[in-house]
Write a protein that binds this DNA or RNA. Structure first.
Lengths: 112, 112
DNA sequence: TTCCATACCTCGCAGCGCGAGGTATAGTCG
DNA sequence: CGACTATACCTCGCGCTGCGAGGTATGGAA
């Protein structure tokens, strides 16, 4: 299996969380589990990353929290705000541009 | 034009510098200029990033410095060490795995 | 009662990108 | 000669962010 490189993860949590929530509302634990499956372990966020990230995004008005009681336990579902959707679009564009740039460097010599 | 997102740049300088030096030895200023051209501005590293990165990599034994006098100015050419080549291989693998994971999340819904 | 899964949370460390600012030389233009 | 630009190196401190460790509480199964 492959090792994880923490430094390469910068900015990724915000991006993928926004992307997941664009599909449907989810709660924290669910996000963590979903990410593991969809990304095949390569992107798994620990709770020490996930919850602070969710709170920060909420504080910035990207997410709207919707707490619910389910079988005696509290789940905090999150929905994307309009601002969150805009943020996702921009972040996605930035990611793709940057990713393409790196790919161009990695893809051997300078064949344009 | 697209904006840059600093947080997405984490780990990128080390990766691209190693990749460039794998091709041929270069000096700092040259690396900065080359990067601008090859990546079409999307990856340009300021000198406040580049030089500290080079020193850190040298300290970790990834690069071998080769100072030369050229027309009265000092250039420090850098060559990859064996360790640097190994580091490049691992970093590249990590990058691709992570990048693929994000791409899978971004690529719409959960088809597969 | 013990244990595990669910479900939330916080704290402090460490790493890294970045802009601003600094030094010095060579060549050009007026 | 003096001013300016390009080359070529460097450092410092801010601020952000990922992360592991540790903590609380409930419900259900062994």
């Amino acid at each position: 299996m492959g090792e994880r490189d923490p430094t390469l993860m910068a900015g990724v949590p915000e991006l993928v969380v926004l992307r997941l929530l664009a599909e449907r509302e989810m709660y924290g634990y669910e996000i963590a589990r979903t990410l593991k499956v969809v990304s095949r372990e390569t992107l798994s966020l620990g709770e020490g990353v996930l919850y602070p990230a969710l709170h920060a995004m909420e504080a910035r008005g990207l997410l709207r929290p919707r707490p619910r009681q389910v079988e005696g336990r509290t789940r905090i579902y999150y929905q994307l705000t309009a601002r969150g959707r805009r943020r996702l679009a921009r972040l996605t564009a930035n990611w793709q541009r940057m990713s393409a740039g790196v790919a161009r460097i990695l893809g051997t010599s300078g064949h344009d």
